[in-house]
Design a protein around this nucleic acid. Structure first.
Lengths: 206, 206
DNA sequence: GATTGCCTAGGCAATACTGCCCATGCCGGC
DNA sequence: GCCGGCATGGGCAGTATTGCCTAGGCAATC
C-alpha cells in the first residue's frame, strides 16, 4: 500500500504564476503529486497519458480551458477536469459541465474546497482510466479479427437470440460448418470461451 | 405523423405567475404542449409519468428546484430538467448540472434560447423514456424468476465465459440436469432464446 | 388433506457444438 | 512460381444442449 503511484497526480493548468505556485504547493502538502503548466499547449506537450485530475483555468490566452476540455474528450484521455475561473459566469459553468467537467469553482476559493473536489474528481478519473484501458484492450483484440469474422461477430451481437451456426450460416449464405470454423477462431482471438462472453465483450465497445 | 402526442410536453414549474403565463403562451405558440404548475408539489400531484421536459425554477418556496430534481432522479421519471433562476450563481448551476440537469438559464433569458434548449432536452427525455421503459420491462420479466433461477442467472452473468450446465451445476452443487431444467424455465420466462441474450438482457439492469 | 409451486434429477432422442483432421480456391507478397 | 493467410466446407468422435417425458420431496396455501 505504499510507494510511487500512491499520490494521485494533479495537473494545474493556469497562466497565472501565483495560482500555479500556490496551488501546487498546497496540493503537494496534502499528498497530491501536483505539476503545473502555464498553458494548454504546455500541458499537452508534457502529458504522458496517465489517469489524473486536471485543474484548468477557464479563461487562458491561447487554447482556452473549454477547448482543451473538448480535446481531452475527443482523445479519450483518462482525465477528470475541474475548472477554476476568475471572470466566468453561469453560462460558462453550464457549458463546462455539459462538456463533462467534474466541477467548476470561482476564484477566489478556499483551498480546502478544491482539495475536497479533487478527491472526488480523482475517483472519476480512476474509474475512467479503468474503463478506457478495458475498452482499448478489447478493441485491440477485435482488431485481430478478419473481415468475415467481424461480420459474424456483428451478426451475433445484433441477434443475440439466434446464435446457432445454422441460423448464422443461412443468414450469411455460407455453410454452418464454416461458421463453426470462424466462431472457433473468433473465440480464440478474443480470448473468450463462449458466445455469451462475446456479446458481453462487444457491449464494452460503446 | 400527426395527431395527439406529436407536441412534446413541457411542464413549467415556477411560483411566479407572470413567468408561468408568458412561458406557456410562448411554448404553445411554438408547438409544445405546455402546462404550468405553481409549485413542485402541484407538479408532482399532476404528473402522470409521461416523458417530458420540465422547466424548473431553481428557487421556489416549499420544495425547491434542486429537491424536486433529486426526487425525479430517485424515482427515475423520464424527465429532462432545465433550470431557470433569478438569483442563482455559479455554485447553484454547478450543483444543478451535477444533479443531471440538461441546462441552466439565468433570468432574464430570450425565449428563443429557451425554446432551443427545450428541443435538445426533449431529445434527452425521449431517450431516457425509451431506456426507462426497456429497463422496467426487463425488470418485470426478471421478477417472474424463482430464487433458484435467479441464482443461476446471477452466476451465468458473473461468469459469461463458463456457461455450460456442467460447470454451473458443479458450482452450485446440483446436477447438470437440474441446471438444464432451470435454464429452460429461465429462457422461457425472460422470453429469450439463448444464454447470450440472457447476458445481454442482464446488462440492461444497471 | 388436497393442491399448487418449486427444486431436484433421471431417461431418451434429436439436435447442436467442439476439436481435431482434411481439402480446395483465392489473393498478395517475396 | 511458391508460400502464407483467408474463406470455404466436409468427416468424425466426443460432448453438450434441448425438448419432452416421468417423479419424488418439501413447503405453503386453500
Amino acid at each position: 500500500m505504499s510507494g510511487p503511484g500512491l499520490a494521485p497526480p494533479v495537473f494545474v493548468v493556469d497562466d497565472d504564476p501565483d495560482i500555479r505556485s500556490s496551488l501546487t504547493r498546497a496540493l503537494r502538502m496534502r499528498g497530491f503529486a501536483a505539476e503545473a503548466f502555464a498553458s494548454a499547449q504546455a500541458f499537452l506537450d508534457g502529458y504522458d497519458g496517465r489517469a489524473a485530475c486536471v485543474v484548468l483555468d477557464f479563461g487562458m490566452p491561447g487554447m482556452n480551458g473549454l477547448e482543451l476540455q473538448a480535446l481531452i474528450n475527443r482523445e479519450g484521455f483518462p482525465l477528470a477536469v475541474i475548472f477554476i475561473t476568475g471572470h466566468g459566469g453561469v453560462p460558462e459553468s453550464v457549458q463546462a459541465m455539459k462538456g463533462g467537467a467534474v466541477d467548476f469553482l470561482e476564484k477566489p476559493f478556499r483551498q480546502s474546497v478544491l482539495v475536497e473536489r479533487i478527491g472526488a474528481a480523482w475517483e472519476v478519473a480512476s474509474a475512467r482510466a479503468v474503463a478506457e484501458g478495458r475498452s482499448r484492450d478489447v478493441a485491440a483484440r477485435f482488431e485481430r479479427l478478419t473481415a468475415r469474422e467481424r461480420e459474424i461477430v456483428d451478426w451475433i451481437v445484433a441477434h443475440p437470440g439466434t446464435v446457432s451456426s445454422k441460423e448464422v450460416g443461412r443468414s450469411l449464405g455460407i455453410s454452418p460448418r464454416t461458421v463453426d470454423h470462424h466462431r472457433a477462431r473468433i473465440l480464440e482471438k478474443l480470448e473468450i470461451r463462449s458466445v455469451a462472453e462475446l456479446v458481453d465483450l462487444a457491449r464494452v465497445l460503446d
